[in-house]
């Protein structure tokens, strides 16, 4: 349906996206995962015809849309990372403004506005000025505005940044519902791997402008089939303890956080007793030590040597 073919985008000396290939099929929810600055926003800007690539092609239904994007623009809805709304207008006025620019008017416009407001749970607050809304409500309206013209493809660029867990769940459920009820195709970018895991059928992982992995959740997790992820939790760490782990020949990669160290080690290697012994010798008060179920976060750590939120 929609694909990026060998696409590159350069800004002066910086290559924001490098030779990226991506395919989105009808009715899929595709996730684009990567840390901040990975090039996700640039990639979706090219995919949605907002930015022209330096090289490569973007095809919609097998036709290039770089020079003639109108066919795509009619059926695409975009939810930008920022709150792309008129803050001085009410929720309903915003809806009507964006509905009108898509050619909706009269009774049809009003019906559509009512339907979408209901969908995003803002019917009661329709007359309120947007700048008085909470962050979560603004995000919901930001999504609602993109749904007014019944787009076939919804491109969502980190739609849950900076909101409370309750609003976040509401948004995730809304996206899931849209996909199930209307067979809407969704491209969802995030740096929250649990969101992508929950929503997406297929996932693309980006880092520093490169596509480093792609496939279904299970396929991606298979990348770690030859390795185990071990979680070590403690109240605090000791520099010598960290150094010893880092130098251990069986440890392939490690990520250190305030109260957790995640180690990626070769499968079938048992270093539990060694870790426990090291902790005891170096006065590290261990709280737990276990093998983790593989997550996308672990895959990212495996592929880049860094945590997703670094």
């Amino acid at each position: 349906m929609l694909e990026l073919i060998d696409i590159t985008k350069k800004f002066k000396q910086t290559e924001a996206v490098k030779n990226m290939n991506m395919y989105i099929g009808r009715g899929e929810i595709v996730g684009l995962l990567g840390p901040n600055g990975a090039g996700k926003s640039t990639a979706i800007s090219m995919l949605s015809s907002l930015v022209e690539p330096t090289s490569g092609d973007v095809k919609f239904q097998n036709k290039s849309i770089i020079k003639n994007p109108q066919s795509l623009r009619k059926i695409i809805g975009i939810v930008p990372q920022e709150i792309a709304l008129y803050e001085d207008l009410s929720a309903e006025e915003n809806m009507k403004f964006f509905g009108r620019i898509y050619g909706l008017k009269g009774q049809k416009l009003q019906e559509k506005v009512n339907e979408v407001l209901e969908h995003i749970g803002l019917t009661e607050r329709r007359k309120d000025i947007v700048k008085k809304f909470s962050g979560g409500m603004k995000r919901r309206l930001n999504i609602g505005v993109a749904m007014l013209h019944d787009p076939e493809i919804l491109v969502m660029d980190e739609p849950t940044v900076g909101i409370d867990p309750q609003s976040r769940n509401y948004i995730l459920q809304t996206v899931k519902r849209l996909n199930e009820e209307r067979q809407m195709t969704v491209l969802y970018t995030s740096h929250y791997m649990e969101e992508v895991e929950y929503l997406c059928d297929r996932i693309y992982i980006m880092d520093k402008g490169n596509l480093i992995a792609s496939g279904t959740k299970d396929e991606i997790k298979q990348i770690l089939s030859l390795e185990n992820t071990i979680s070590i939790k403690a109240d605090y760490w000791n520099e010598d303890f960290i150094e010893k782990l880092r130098e251990h020949p069986q440890v392939n990669r490690m990520n250190i956080e305030e109260k957790e160290i995640v180690l990626v080690v070769s499968k079938n290697v048992n270093i539990f007793s060694e870790i426990a012994h090291l902790a005891e010798v170096m006065n590290v008060p261990l709280r737990s030590l276990d093998v983790k179920k593989v997550t996308l976060e672990d895959v990212f750590l495996h592929l880049t040597g860094r945590a997703l939120r670094d």
Binding site: L50, I76, I78, Q81, I101
Partner: peptide
């Protein structure tokens, strides 16, 4: 242009 309203309009028939 910074907050995405402009992009939304570009992607519309306007």
């Amino acid at each position: 242009k910074g907050n995405g309203v402009w992009d939304r309009m570009i992607l519309s028939p306007l």
